[in-house]
């Protein structure tokens, strides 16, 4: 009983601890100045989180956006079409993918994705897509939101696939048979009977993936460039919140309020992830009971 409650206690303790430690900066600046201020110069007393919030947002959106369409197709294939044998191979492989340490994904991103963005995607976009918003190529290196997003997409794919697959498995076969029995094809059955049933669960699975992407630190910070600017394009470097904390906490702690500012960033991160997870868990619970 006591041990089961321990996680709850830890979450509360961490939240309260972060709140107390970031209190100095929360009381010195208004929330508006902190959240929407776009200049980060701690030595001059400027603590605007906006560049980091925008950076986190874009990396997450690109990661989730790239991951979701193929993940949905894979889950649907595995749940509705694949032979039991295929499934028995795919499941452990996905678990294995999920078990690869983030730093390995980071190295892979550094060695494969960053050069790929630099030598292929960026020139391509410059030539053909530069007129689109967020597609301008201003920075010559491959360290960018796009690189971070691609790495994240690969990292969250196993999670999203396995959650969505489980959701599909909760739909009773009788419903599929009822539809097939009147001559519907498999796809008509999926689209008209199964999908409407599982839609909330799919969204919850995506939110869970987004929450994972939002908090991912090391793999992203290795490829995203870490420049504290408000990015204007997918090819710009960005500086997500987790990277800010990981790169800076422990250095330059003599600057007034610096420590409080970084812990405030951690608080924001924790808050968003808690909300995402709680929302997703509540939806998923309805399916899994």
């Amino acid at each position: 009983m006591v041990i089961t409650l321990l996680p709850l206690f830890l979450i509360s303790a961490v939240t309260i601890g972060l709140l107390l430690r970031s209190w100095p900066i929360l009381s010195a600046y208004s929330l508006k100045e902190l959240l929407f201020g776009s200049i980060w110069k701690p030595s001059q007393g400027l603590f605007g989180f906006w560049p980091f919030i925008v950076g986190t947002f874009w990396v997450t959106v690109v990661g989730v956006g790239l991951a979701v369409p193929p993940c949905l197709l894979v889950s649907i294939y595995l749940a509705e079409y694949a032979h039991a044998f295929t499934r028995s191979i795919a499941k452990p492989v996905l678990d294995l993918l999920a078990a690869i340490p983030p730093v390995v994904y980071g190295v892979w991103g550094l060695l494969a994705i960053v050069p790929f963005v630099e030598t292929f995607l960026a020139p391509f976009s410059k030539r053909w897509l530069a007129f689109l918003p967020f597609m301008a190529v201003n920075s010559p290196t491959g360290f960018s939101i796009l690189a971070g997003g691609i790495v994240l997409a690969v990292m969250i794919a196993p999670l999203v696939i396995s959650v969505v697959f489980e959701i599909f498995a909760t739909v009773p076969n009788d419903l599929r048979f009822a539809s097939l029995a009147i001559g519907a094809t498999r796809w008509e059955t999926i689209r008209r009977v199964v999908l409407p049933q599982v839609l909330p669960g799919i969204i919850a699975g995506i939110v869970l993936g987004a929450s994972r992407a939002f908090g991912e630190t090391i793999a992203v910070l290795m490829v995203v460039g870490n420049v504290p600017q408000v990015p204007g394009s997918l090819f710009d470097a960005a500086y997500p919140l987790p990277a800010l904390i990981a790169n800076n906490y422990g250095d330059m702690m003599s600057i007034p309020l610096y420590d409080a500012a970084l812990l405030c960033a951690a608080l924001i991160l924790l808050g968003v992830i808690l909300i995402f997870n709680i929302a997703a868990t509540l939806v998923l619970k309805r399916f899994m009971k």
């Binding site: 009788d174 419903l175 009822a178 539809s179 009147i182 001559g183 519907a184 049933q197």
Partner: peptide
């Protein structure tokens, strides 16, 4: 084949739709 040969299952399995849509579903497909 399955359109020509209908099946009434052991347990009733209404599709997760309205009464109307359950009946129109097959005709619609």
């Amino acid at each position: 084949v399955r359109k020509r040969v209908g099946l009434l299952a052991q347990r009733p399995t209404p599709l997760p739709m309205s009464i109307y849509e359950n009946v129109s579903y097959g005709m619609y497909i």
